[in-house]
Amino acid sequence: MREPPPIFRLRDIGVDYRTPAGTVTGVAGVTLDIPRTGLTVLAGPSGSGKSTLLRVLGLFDRPVRGELTFAGLDTGALSHRRRRALRREQLGLIFQNPADNLLPHLTVGDNLRAAAQSAGHPCDPELLLAPLGLSGTGPWRVPALSGGQQQRLAFGCALARRSSVILADEPTSQLDDASAEKVLDTLRYLVDQDFAVLVTSHDERLIGLAARVARLRDGRLEEVVDGAGG
């Protein structure tokens, strides 16, 4: 059977930043395909370019060099409005700090409803919460959740929006071991549901789940290898 085309195609992607000391290159010459399903991990030490590349894939930042296509669309040709619509309708981005992903003044259930409404979908919060191990928390305010629970709720918001791709930046980095394990369970669930999941991490437990691992160093792609989860 012919393999489906990748959801993301990156060709010679480069990103520069202007600083008081001059121009700094965050990512240089990255060529990579991201499959339509399964877990892909961008691995590497701090400063390797993982988070920069994730922001490019999340359509927050435009590369200054190279070509990025999403589902066959040349993202470089898209207007700001169209890029924002794609983020809202297709991409779920989970930040490192759990609280940055949620609306703290709303309940758990209302966070899910708001996420669904932003993409024009209905939502039954309990149906989303149960597979994430958060049953019964719908009436709770976000601050009542632990950091790990907040991170799982953030993934639930991506599900509520019916995002086709879920992008997560170091989702276990600020969690204790027990909370991190539950987030790993959530990632396993998402993979079982045939989502494309792309995660930055240097957590070896998370890397061990990946079907594919792309290792970066100093903004460059060192290697792409099949992971133990493939």
Rank of each mutant, 00 (worst) to 15 (best):
V225G: 03
E223C: 10
L59M: 14
L167T: 12
D218T: 07
A168P: 11
Q90R: 15
K50H: 06
I34W: 09
N101Y: 05
P45N: 02
P122T: 12
A154R: 06
R83F: 10
Y189A: 10
A77V: 04
R18S: 15
V41A: 04
N97A: 13
T200N: 11
D33F: 11
P98K: 06
I34N: 06
A28G: 03
S135Q: 14
Q193A: 12
A28V: 10
G138Y: 01
A21V: 08
L73R: 15
D194E: 15
D124T: 15
R55G: 10
A43H: 01
G230L: 12
D74A: 14
T25Y: 00
T75F: 14
R83Q: 13
H121G: 09
V56K: 11
G38N: 03
P139T: 07
L73S: 10
V191L: 05
A28D: 15
V213A: 05
A115H: 10
V165P: 05
R152I: 04
T37F: 06
T137P: 03
V108L: 07
V24M: 10
I166S: 07
I13R: 01
S163M: 13
G76V: 10
R215W: 04
G219C: 08
A119Y: 15
G92H: 01
S179R: 02
A196N: 04
D203F: 03
G136L: 09
R62E: 13
R36D: 14
P35F: 06
P35E: 09
A71L: 10
L221M: 11
W140P: 00
